[in-house]
Nucleic acid binder design. Structure first.
Lengths: 112, 112
DNA sequence: CATTTGTTCAACCATGTGGTTGAATATCTG
DNA sequence: CAGATATTCAACCACATGGTTGAACAAATG
């Protein structure tokens, strides 16, 4: 497994359960049990999802006694957002028809 | 498969080959063969990646004679970006040192 | 027409993924 | 100490994924 950070982040985000966990972490720290509670899923199952989020660097864990407190770490989300930002012009420039036509012309040559 | 659009988009983005294809599509349309060329991978393999991008709504295909022209469709990227935008405050607030210190104080429980 | 070119399809394979269960490990509490 | 609580670990399962190959199909070309 030589997956890049961006691979791990996007993969972590590609699951609704994990996105839901992140959403709930946005309002404050949660224990593993609290994060798992809303889902019709074993605790071990939810724990795996949290580990995936942790591996992607989206969640930090602080072991506090017998419970593990999880908190959001948004730095990697910022990276993902930055990656997407490159394409921003493709949905904001939508109105600029001239520009689209110019790009069409450019693409006939073969070097990027 | 009852995967939501966001699931499909993030999953499609979680692979470096597919991200690379998108990046190259940002400079103009490409045929399947052109998209596949840079990779040490069979054409059928690359074709599958393109199908994944298409299923996620990130790429549109226009069959033109015997070759299939692919173009970027950024709408779904905009959706993904919007999803991420919710968390923006967590990485822009970072500069607000006072805020960070207040959170720190809360979590300590004892002040020097 | 036969052949080459661009692409997909179908079958297959190894590995990864999301989930389960039952046992193990810590930690708090009486 | 014994027991309850919070969490992980390990083994397992069904299915998806990323890749291969060889054959098939469609369209341009001699």
């Amino acid at each position: 497994m030589h997956a890049s950070p961006l691979d791990l982040v996007f993969h972590a985000l590609a699951d609704p359960t994990r996105r839901d966990m992140l959403r709930r972490l946005s309002t404050g720290e949660r224990t593993v049990g609290e994060l798992a509670e809303p889902f019709a899923m074993s605790l071990a199952g939810a724990s795996k999802h949290i580990r995936t989020l942790e591996a992607a660097g989206l969640v930090r864990r602080e072991v506090k006694g017998r419970q593990h407190l999880c908190r959001l770490d948004a730095a990697r989300l910022a990276q993902a957002s930055e990656w997407l930002r490159f394409y921003e012009r493709f949905w904001t420039e939508r109105l600029n028809v001239l520009d689209a036509l110019l790009r069409e012309d450019d693409s006939k040559g073969d070097t990027p």
